[in-house]
Design a protein around this nucleic acid. Sequence first.
DNA 1: GGTTGACGCGCG
DNA 2: AAAGCGCGCGTCAACC
Length: 576
Amino acid sequence: MGDGSPWADAERIVLARALDGRAVATVLDRDGERGRRALSAAELPAWVAEREASPGSRGVRWIWSSTTEWYPALLEAGVRVARCHDLRLCHAILRDAVPGAAELRAAVQWNGAAAGETAGHTEALFSLDEPRGGPRRDDVREVLEELARQDAAVPRATDPGRMRLLLAAESAGALVAAELASAGVPWDAEHHRRILEDVLGPRRGGVPQNMGRLAGEVRAALGDPALALDSPPRLLKALHNAGIRVDSTSKWELREIDHPAIAPLLEYKRLSRLLSANGWAWLDEWVHDHRFRPVYVPGGVVTGRWASSGGGALQLPRQLRQALRADPGWRIVTADVAQLEPRVLAAMSRDARLADAARGRDLYEGIVASGAVATRAEGKIAMLGAMYGATTGDSGRLVPRLRSAYPRAMGLVDAAARTGADGGVVSTWLGRTSPAPDELWRDAQTRASRPGASAADETRARRIGRDRGRFTRNFIVQGTAAEWALAWLADLRLRLADFPQVESGSAAPRSGRAFSRRAHLAFFLHDEVLIHAPEEQADAAAQAMRDAAEAAGRLLFGSFPIDFPLDLRISDSAAK
DNA sequence: GGTTGACGCGCG
DNA sequence: AAAGCGCGCGTCAACC
């Protein structure tokens, strides 16, 4: 790699799979291949640990087809690595972001999810067992060729330096995701059950008691003794029959209605949601041995955010956070970033006035102090509206005030929206690109621009254009915020890995071998991180969170004066 | 019978 | 107080 790149001094070791199932490690240095050896599954962890620890290979970067295929077995054996390059995730970024990366685009066998990761609905383009999609992705030659394609593509990125950061951050995120799976979220199932019993009432075979009582009240108030509350169409008819004029059964609409059936109905919906999303069945499926182990999918969202597939980690209701409890002798350290997205917007647009409003305080209060809006609530609505593309309501009405107060920041998101509406592609700060327009957009524009297009065609084309504009407007902000969060996580996990091990007497053995004796990441949610730490390491873990946030800000935005204050708490649980 | 899409709602 | 981004998941109903 070129001078100054994060890879410049790193020894690179490529792991692939031989036909006999053994791992093949190819050691690369600046001048090319320096050696190769085959290792059995039993030999691999110790060998990796040795290379990772040896002073001579400081900065070794492990290159593999996919972190989800290689790292769990190492963690299982108690071995962590500091750095990796996840070819599958990096392929997806480079393929779209590098102009003219024809070789990468042609290597379609690298598209799609990791082998063995496609449970059902997502059609696997490729699988290790049936290489019908082309070369076996884990094959030694295939892996080395893909690495060569990516090495060739990076210097042709719009900004190679930023692209290297993005690839390193994305790969580090994949390591974090595997480590989170290994460590698990400490979960107090008994406490969770108490909450369920309190809210839903005892289960007596069928419907929990409190839900049954509420359902009875709704049926009585609507004069419909057989009504099935869980069927929106039937519920809607029953509401109409009772003279309640609503277009849907959503709680937003129902909340406006004055009728004796509404209060118990809304309460019923609340309970029903808790039961189906995080009730006893969820506990049985997802919590074992005091750990909740959700399935994270790094890079699963187009913007670069993580997705999840299983366990609903990204939707844990606030109501249940108090069941997230530290092991005895351990603490929960939580940190979330205050107003991450507008801060990122200030930095990427180099808007010094917005950065001023953000500095050292609540950003929305800062907007009030600048005189642009009257109250914090207005500042928040206006800023969200600016980032999401609101045009109507209170939000849409307030956005113009921000436009005049913060022309640089607003100019950047407005420009992204115009680009998107016109069918263009936008990029995050580090260079992840938005998808090209879909068929719906292309078709609408084609219809509207042909001779004899109707007014309806033109209206439709404009609407679809605006829809896409709202997406690209938000893409650059949400995507750059995701990059900041990855940088934060990446820095934090290395700091925590340097923490000393605690006495084995105070270990938390359920956290997995690599994490049971020192502070470790336990949960991540877009702009929020949770650490499970031995009591004596809690303060240091909190400081590591602050230091990592500071480092992430500098890594992305250099000396631009933006700060990322954390809301930090040390407690027995994750409850606010 | 199984699959698919709309809905509703939880999270950021 | 509800229209404006990104998700996952459970449920129901329409469909093959």
